[in-house]
Design a protein around this nucleic acid. Structure first.
Length: 269
DNA sequence: ATGATATGATGAG
DNA sequence: TCATCCTATCATC
């Protein structure tokens, strides 16, 4: 369910609910029993997000490294924790709140050095103030790989997923099949600036909205539509539906085993 | 009951 | 490029 904006929200929510206090940690499912036991009862010192990786810090110096993958989830609740529903890999709880982690790609105890190593192999994260967009440009310019694949490559850019990829390319009229080396510097600068803005909005809203006010279905006199992911978008999962701007059917294809969406008219090759 | 699907990533060949 | 991992939800039988 998550692109980078959600992970940053979860980091903030973790800090708010559990930061600075002792937290009980358990693994109702059992698959993280050893790790949970090691930090159980410790003070949670902080939570950080880099790209799609979430790190929870504990007073003993250990970090819990979480990556939600395609369908993992971390949900929060208030009050006493109820009986776990489904497969809860990790439950955090104090007297006021609880949080349940389900279906993560990764949930592991790591050291500070290992955490640094994870961050080091990621590209710049548009949501972080320490991000260096030039590092991404160095990998994009001159690359024969498609822009579509480059934007999803976390070594190039951290935190961007399938929705932001499709939407930012649409907003800049860039055909996803173009090679990285065919992007101009100006196009890249515009993409980066847009991702910074869009993803910050996503953190605030908890969903991905990319449609400019003048193109909303209401403004265009079309029926409103909200995708399952909860946001208002131009092309993501709108295959065979008319482009919100030009009316051409939005196209889809499998690209590097992910669904790709684009408007063949607004995003000419 | 079964199968398809999903905003992700890795390791083998 | 393919198989694999992890889970919930929704559609179809």
């Amino acid at each position: 369910m998550p692109e980078g904006h959600i992970i940053h929200r979860l980091a903030a929510a973790s800090s708010t609910a559990f930061g600075g206090r002792a937290v009980s940690a358990s693994s109702p499912q059992g698959r993280f029993a050893d790790g949970a036991a090691l930090v159980d009862g410790q003070v949670l010192t902080g939570a950080e997000a880099t790209g799609k990786h979430l790190f929870l810090g504990f007073e003993g110096g250990a970090w819990v490294h979480i990556h939600l993958g395609l369908y993992g989830g971390l949900t929060f609740g208030e009050g006493a924790a109820p009986e776990p529903v489904g497969l809860v890999r990790l439950r955090l709880a104090n007297d006021d709140s609880y949080a349940d982690l389900r279906g993560p790609n990764t949930c592991a105890l790591i050291t500070g050095a290992e955490k640094a190593a994870v961050a080091a192999r990621l590209g710049p994260d548009p949501l972080r103030t320490d991000a260096d967009p030039d590092a991404a440009w160095r990998r994009i310019s001159g690359s024969r790989t498609t822009v579509a694949a480059l934007l999803m490559d976390q070594k190039v850019l951290a935190g961007v997923g399938n929705v932001y990829r499709a939407e930012v390319l649409f907003r800049h009229g860039i055909n996803p099949h173009r090679a990285g080396r065919d992007l101009t510097r100006a196009e890249w600068d515009a993409i980066w600036a847009d991702l910074v803005a869009l993803m910050h909005e996503g953190v605030g809203a908890g969903r991905i909205d990319t449609v400019r006010p003048e193109h909303t279905p209401e403004a265009m006199g079309r029926p409103p539509r909200v995708d399952d992911h909860g946001g208002e978008v131009y092309v993501y999962r709108r295959a065979a539906m008319p482009c919100l701007i030009c009316g051409t059917d939005v196209r889809t294809e499998e690209h590097a085993s992910r669904n790709l969406f684009w408007c063949p008219r607004c995003q000419q090759a």
